[in-house]
Design a protein around this nucleic acid. Structure first.
Lengths: 200, 200
DNA sequence: GTCTTGTTTGAATGTTCAATCAAGAAGTGG
DNA sequence: CCACTTCTTGATTGAACATTCAAACAAGAC
């Protein structure tokens, strides 16, 4: 175990607590007890609670490759299957948390009603990196997707389906809501692939 | 102006404030100053803040027809166009709020991380009523949708697209994210209608 | 008029919270 | 070994919060 800086400890704890309890419901005291630090140490590193949030959002942004994409895509080559492997990763999280899983970014995006511009930009940046990765898959699928299709819009639609599916699965405490959203998306892709083969 | 009971005043104010600021960030003091009531009056009607939330969720549930469906469907007959008229209603809200709009139910669903069972049930019930209404439209579309399609899943997918689209529009402060989600959904429906005409 | 029941008043309570800061410890360069 | 910076300690502060309650008020029943 490499020696961990106070900053790393706080970010690590905050990623987990913001995800579990939300930003507002996570107190500085929660972070201190989890990290075994004192308030002065925390405030030495982060001037305010919001700066912790910014650190967390930067960590998600900078870690998307290692934390999200590589684990999901390690053993998948087909570009369209990569998209569904990514969604399968979310499904695993939902099941592992007894359907209490919420996408950390999506939950924060809806919890924070008047976010600081830096916070909002980081939320948007996180969404953008996610959809850019999916857009890469769609691009790699080449002619399997019809010419006219807006690839960026389709990638955003994948995010839409994921976030909406996660929200419903959590609300109903039932993965099947997520599964149905993925299935509908799958059918959409199949219809697109069919349309690509037999041009009107 | 009919005389308004304290209960009605509180529910009315809470619907607006929970929507604008979220549940946790709305204080009892906010509700009191908005309604010009005293704390004792509020606690005479609602034993706790959570009971106000329950009242709000019941009001949304009981008001879906008048507040949401009738305004959106007043002048629309085609069942599939009804679905997109409903989404158009959300678009209007997004634009009218300078892209800060969040679906009240969806925002609460993600903000409340450990909701009381009654609260969770009411959130689920609200989603269910919404999707049931959409499912009714899909059913009314009859043979325009292919036989094999899971109508409930498709209705849930419409909710998924709405919630995901609202989330992204709000995060990016840009309606076009919602518009693209709707457009993708529209294409999905067009592909389905085409498939219904020319069976494999 | 007075009893009863339902409602309102608003100051007070106890808790939780983010943030502060003076004092001290640890680490670094000369 | 000293000077200087960086980091840590933890008690403290003041604001915000949900909730309580004894006292006052209102209005219909008899």
């Amino acid at each position: 175990m490499a020696p961990q800086s106070a900053r790393d400890k706080i970010i690590h704890a905050a990623m987990e607590l913001f995800w579990l309890k939300g930003y507002n419901s996570t107190s500085i005291a929660d972070l201190l007890s989890r990290t075994q630090l004192n308030s002065g140490s925390l405030y030495h590193v982060f001037p305010s609670k919001q700066d912790v949030l910014i650190g967390v959002l930067e960590a998600y942004r900078d870690g998307i490759e290692e934390m999200l994409l590589q684990p999901a895509w390690g053993h998948v080559d087909d570009p369209i299957e990569k998209i569904f492997a990514l969604l399968q990763g979310y499904r695993t999280m939902i099941v592992d948390t007894d359907c209490t899983y919420g996408c950390p970014i999506g939950s924060l995006a809806l919890e924070l009603h008047e976010p600081d511009p830096r916070v909002r930009d980081l939320l948007a940046e996180n969404f953008e990196n996610w959809t850019r990765a999916v857009e890469g898959c769609i691009g790699a699928a080449g002619k399997r997707i019809p010419r006219g299709v807006d690839k960026k819009a389709l990638a955003q639609f994948v995010l839409t389906a994921m976030e909406g599916g996660v929200m419903q699965a959590r609300t109903h405490r039932d993965v099947s809501y997520f599964d149905r959203a993925v299935k509908q998306l799958r059918e959409h892709f199949e219809l697109l692939e069919k349309a690509a083969k037999t041009p009107a």
